[in-house]
Amino acid sequence: MKHEQQHNPPMKYGMAIDLDKCTGCGACMVACMSENNVPFKTDESNKLDSITWIRVYKLTNGKSFPDTDICYLPRPCQHCEGHGGHSPCVSVCPATATDYSHETGIVSQIYTRCFGCRYCMAACPYHARYFNWWDPVWPDGMEKYLSPNVSPRMRGVVEKCSFCFHRYQQAKNKAYLNGERRVPEAAYQTACTQACPAGAIVFGDLNNPEHKVHQIVQPDPHNGNRSKNPRAFRLLERLGTNTKVYYLSSREWVRRAGDNYLAHETTGHVSKPHH
């Protein structure tokens, strides 16, 4: 089999999460923990030390009964691109334990390099990073469920959502063996996307016009990758983190909850990067 020496255009894996579809069931969280060998303790009610790569938050519109409206917001790692790959966490890591891939747009976490300084946790505006305060312990028999494709983490390192990167590696190998130049859209999907019973999460290459996520988001490269879809917004978009997780909602109060707006400000404004 002959493969031509030719570079593929870079990919930007990202998500569109429709908050008007999310029921808050938590299946994405369970699928993620199971897929990625995330451990569990007997008491997980202290959410500061409870490791959940994707966490579903509950928002309310702040109005009293009977005008109260709620919205569930699943929060994986936002895989910030910043300006030219300067993600908040990548910029501060002294160990190069986290890196921005210009090939996939995925922010990695290399556990064996991490020495636990937690600068990245302080830098992340989304609380997407978690510290292993203990070595993981699985009850007898439960270790059978562990995925052989994901390395478990040890005490003293930080971990976070990888967009199920091991699945990308497998899909890439398979595509190569099949003589395909690109990883097909369906061949690489995250565990949370597949587990969502409401179909609220769409995952794929934001750069590829054939991918559903691109069609939903319609990112505008001339405007900091802001979505051209009027229902779409990103979390704390005006920080310039240039995230690759887009949220969708037809409710103005939900879109407004995505950033810190002053009373007179309207949603949807994105500042130019500061660099």
């Binding site: 969280m29 369970v30 923990m33 569990f40 997980e44 009610s45 202290n46 959940t52 579903v56 439960m142």
Partner: peptide
């Protein structure tokens, strides 16, 4: 265990 982990700290603490 994974399911109980998803329960909010405003339901059990």
């Amino acid at each position: 265990p994974f399911m109980i982990k998803t329960v909010a700290d405003t339901v059990i603490k």
